[in-house]
Design a binder for these strands. Structure first.
Length: 583
RNA sequence: GACCCCGUAGUUCAAUGGAUAGAACAAUAGCCUUCUAAGCUGUGGAUCUAGGUUCGAUUCCUAGCGGGGUCACCA
């Protein structure tokens, strides 16, 4: 709720000591604009909720003279509903958006606090699939959400460039592809080789010895493997940088497993000395966490080779040395939830006092089941992007070719034909919007079923639907300029239900951002964007902006439309979705 | 076997313990000589089962059924 409106309502209800957060929006517009539930008061007073509501409504109506925002209060069962003055709400909201612009909706909860967000912590020598893409989307959104709440945010990445998967890939490369020339997309090639090697090893476990030998060579920086490792690692990193740039990821630092793993081995020795770790079955080094119900964590294999934990312990140290933050967040798939409980418990035992947060997201499944590189059933981000782009390109081209708007028998003006560069630029933005929206429209913690048809969809609950609204508003602005209609100063003529609804919804920005952050869930933003866009399309179809009854009303509606555009762009920016001028 | 997550229209997803369980897609019937029809308006269609907690349960508890994940040499 807009601060001004909130203050006024809380003033009216001062006697009942309520906060705006207790209020809700009634299910139907004809039931009012805001609802105050009377259950709490009913409990403390012993009266029935319905009676309490009636009493309060009557009392409030006698005091309303002083209020410009609330028109009347009415009891609906156990609720007291408020009917608000459209013009007053619209005026307050639009002015507020005009003044604060891209800061509209910001909060201050994080002022003076520093937070580091690590994502997507992907692996070199492996594919970058749509699961990683989901990770990036969630991380991107959290970075922006924290920033908008006033936090100082440090997005970082941790590249796993040194684990067993690297040994597997290099082994497969030497064994099966030693004489081949690397193709253009080298990172993709490595990913395929990794998958191939994994499958081979599953069927031929004996070959594991050879892989283990490569692991040892790697940890010893043996010249027999090191140059190949460094070269292939670079292939992966180059590609990841390209993808991150495309997806608007801006890491302020990147940590590499290869640089810290040796240090991790020292930490393991130290933990052994301090008695936190001990020697387990077969000579492996473990931490027994069973008293915390976290079972046993493995720090070092019996053959001396390190594991994830071996690197994650020094990683924490390195991270905090570089950035002295209050909270450290890591985003991974939910299958690592248990692992992170172990990791954070060990760090705590080592004396770490910072707030350590693990945020997990659900799997991205395919309609036919789980993604599995073994069955070749994996969708790579780049392949998906190319597929979506093709569709957006065709669609855009068709809409802006000669004759598109000419209806048989009618002499309707056709829009100018677009140049290919403009089609490509627009289709690129539409592609990103479609993909990023599709990934963020579901609650982040839940598994989702990825449907290519839905990802390429341009209608309904989709990215292009939102960009379409912005394009329409841009078009209004351009036409208004030609017709010499200026953005209205007097907004008191915005009295319709649809205009009020838009204003009320825009006023929710701040609440929505806070909620999305509290739940670590960008889908709250995505849904809000969609609902605001729907409300605008409803308004647009019922009321003409430029051909309004009076020039004043046209100007006022233009101002309202521009405010909607601003709010939509503010929220889409959190999802790192750029808008298009036209489409 | 133990622990964690999930079960809502044909499908994919919403719903701080609150009002008549919302959308989108699909199905179906309409709306372009008026600001971009990538739009708008209708119609039909759902809370896994059985108990419990209470003024009120999709939401909390118990049991069962079904799906996914994790549980020391994997990442």
């Amino acid at each position: 709720m807009l601060r001004e409106v909130q203050a006024e309502i809380e003033g009216l209800l001062a006697a009942y000591n309520v906060k705006a957060s207790e209020m809700s929006i009634p299910p139907k517009p004809e039931m009012g604009d805001l609802a105050f539930p009377c259950f709490t008061i009913s409990k403390s007073s012993g009266k029935k909720p319905n009676e309490v509501a009636t009493d309060i409504a009557g009392e409030l109506n006698r005091k309303l003279g002083a209020s410009s925002v609330v028109l009347k209060a009415q009891a609906f069962g156990p609720y007291v509903n408020f009917f608000l003055n459209s013009a007053a709400i619209a005026e307050l909201t639009v002015r507020s958006v005009q003044k604060e612009r891209n800061l509209f909706g910001d909060g201050e909860a994080g002022k003076g606090k520093k937070v580091m967000i690590e994502y997507p912590s992907n692996n070199t020598h492996k594919e970058f699939h749509i699961g990683h893409f989901r990770n990036v989307c969630i991380g991107n959104a959290l970075v922006r959400l924290y920033a908008r709440e006033g936090y100082e945010v440090y997005p970082v990445n941790y590249l796993n460039d040194f684990g067993a998967h690297v040994a597997k890939c290099l082994w497969g490369l030497k064994k099966f592809h030693a004489d081949e020339k690397a193709p253009e997309n080298k990172q993709k090639w490595l990913g395929e080789i990794y998958a191939e090697a994994s499958m081979y090893l599953k069927n031929n476990p004996d070959a594991g010895e050879e892989v283990a030998a490569i692991s040892k060579q790697l940890e010893a920086k043996d010249k027999k493997i090191w140059p190949l490792f460094m070269k292939t690692r670079e292939w992966s990193i180059e590609k990841f940088d390209e993808i991150f740039a495309e997806l608007n990821v801006n890491h302020v630092a990147v940590f590499y497993e290869k640089d810290i793993k040796a240090k991790g081995q020292k930490i393991v020795d130290e933990l052994l000395r301090r008695g936190i770790a001990k020697v387990g079955e077969g000579g492996a080094i473990i931490v027994d966490l069973s008293e915390y119900k976290f079972d046993i964590a493995l720090l070092r294999k019996s053959n001396g080779v390190g594991l994830y934990l071996t690197a994650d312990l020094p990683l924490a140290e390195e991270k905090f040395k570089k950035f002295n933050v209050d909270e450290s967040i890591v985003i991974t798939g939910q299958e690592q939830t248990f692992y992170f409980k172990q990791l954070y418990k060990i760090l705590e035992l080592m004396g770490e006092k910072r707030k350590l947060t693990h945020i997990s997201y659900g799997l991205v499944n395919l309609p036919e089941g789980k993604m599995s590189s073994r069955s070749g059933n994996v969708i790579l981000y780049e392949d998906l992007r190319d597929q979506v782009f093709e569709k957006m390109y065709e669609e855009t081209k068709a809409r802006h070719s000669a004759g598109r708007f000419v209806i048989p028998g009618q002499d309707r003006e056709s829009t100018p034909v677009w140049l290919d560069k403009k089609i490509v630029d627009t289709a690129r933005k539409l592609t990103q919007a479609a993909l990023k929206f599709d990934m963020q429209k579901h609650e982040s913690g839940k598994n989702i079923v990825f449907d290519i048809r839905e990802a390429t969809s341009v209608e309904g609950f989709s990215g292009p639907y939102l960009l379409y609204v912005v394009a329409r508003i841009n078009s209004l602005t351009a036409k208004a300029k030609k017709e010499k209609i200026t953005v209205g100063k007097n907004l008191s003529c915005l009295t319709s239900e649809e205009e009020k609804r838009l204003a009320l919804m825009m006023g929710e920005s701040e609440t929505v951002i806070a909620k999305a952050l509290a739940q670590y869930n960008p889908s709250v933003i995505a849904r809000y964007c969609f609902e605001l866009a729907q409300a605008f399309n409803d308004f647009y179809s019922k009321h003409s902006v430029l051909n309004a009854e009076t020039k004043e009303l046209a100007g006022a509606r233009l101002a309202l439309s521009l405010a909607v555009k601003q709010v939509l762009e503010n929220m889409l920016a959190i999802l790192t979705i750029e808008t298009v001028e036209e489409m």
